[in-house]
């Protein structure tokens, strides 16, 4: 019997496989395909202070081994989430984290305060890296002082697990990771989508209504691995790795690079059962390699 459990700070996961915000809805959408309780955790859709309609269609463009999205945080707002959605999903026997996104520090603080009152929500993922909204979002995560300021402000009102999701659209992601660590983050997750665009050569038009959008999928995996490795080598808090993970082998690579857990994102769109199969695949990998505890893999990359 292999031990797949990992701790991310004060958060105990039965295995290191979580699902990434915006790719797994509220978990309910995947009930027919995955045993949610078999996952280490799920991170539900980005939640804002009030209802958002998101960006106009088209919001998605396919790319080789990936896709661009410009959804723009469509959601019903934190109040509806807590009163209608949470009562339906609180029975999931796994860690359900809420992804929190705002346009101002005050909005982040307001949402985090409301979630703090609901004691059975074990943590939040602070989204300072959404590239698809005009105000806030990524602008917080691409400047070190503002990333620190929003993390510190939320830390003051949110006592449970605080994960901060970092943007790869920066010159030095290590500097920002260290900044939010100093501001009180319990963990960092990376990477959010890479800013990109797609053009229709026939019509001379952009393929997204917003012109630019966030690139995700297997095409970004090498960038994500590199950033996870750099950040994990520089901070003491746990790192949660994501970016193009589609198989147990991909997950192992992120653990070797130093991630304590991983998130499966865009791959959920292509294979809605993939997250559960990655959990099974990790167990199989450990058996094949005679590894008893998955924590023995974390940071095991041999660069000698």
């Amino acid at each position: 019997m292999v031990d797949l459990s990992v701790d991310i700070g004060n958060l105990q996961l039965k295995n290191p496989v979580m699902t990434a915000s915006g790719t797994f809805g509220y978990g309910e959408e995947y009930r027919d395909f995955v045993d949610i309780s078999a996952l280490g955790g799920i991170i539900v859709k980005g939640t804002t202070g009030s209802h958002r309609e998101g960006n106009p269609y088209p919001r998605m463009a396919e790319t080789p081994m990936g896709m661009l999205n410009a959804v723009g945080l469509q959601n019903k707002g934190v109040d509806v989430f807590l009163s209608e959605t949470w009562p339906r999903i609180r029975t999931f026997r796994t860690n359900v984290l809420v992804n929190v996104s705002g346009s101002t520090v005050e909005e982040y603080v307001e949402i985090a305060s409301k979630i703090a009152e609901v004691k059975d929500i074990p943590g939040i993922e602070l989204n300072i890296s959404c590239p698809n909204v005009k105000e806030g979002g990524m602008t917080f995560g691409t400047s070190c002082p503002s990333a620190i300021a929003v993390t510190r402000a939320v830390r003051e009102v949110f006592p449970r697990h605080l994960m901060v999701k970092l943007s790869p659209n920066v010159t030095d992601i290590v500097e920002i990771a260290k900044g939010v660590e100093g501001a009180g983050a319990d963990s960092v997750s990376l990477i959010n989508t890479l800013l990109g665009m797609a053009i229709d050569a026939e019509t001379w038009r952009p393929l997204l209504s917003t012109v630019t959008g966030g690139l995700s999928g297997p095409c970004i995996k090498p960038v994500a691995l590199r950033m996870v490795w750099q950040v994990a080598s520089a901070v003491k808090i746990p790192v949660v790795g994501l970016g193009g993970i589609s198989s147990a082998t991909d997950a192992v690579e992120f653990l070797l690079a130093g991630a304590s857990a991983v998130q499966v994102g865009t791959a959920n769109f292509v294979d809605p059962s993939v997250s559960g199969r990655i959990v099974d695949g990790l167990a199989g990998y450990m058996q094949r390699h005679n590894i008893e505890k998955i924590t023995d893999i974390i940071g095991g990359l041999d660069v000698s």
Partner: peptide, 15 residues
Amino acid sequence: NKMACGIGACLCCVT
């Protein structure tokens, strides 16, 4: 509409 997930999770295919 252009879709990614087909099961209401990604919110890409909205009208």
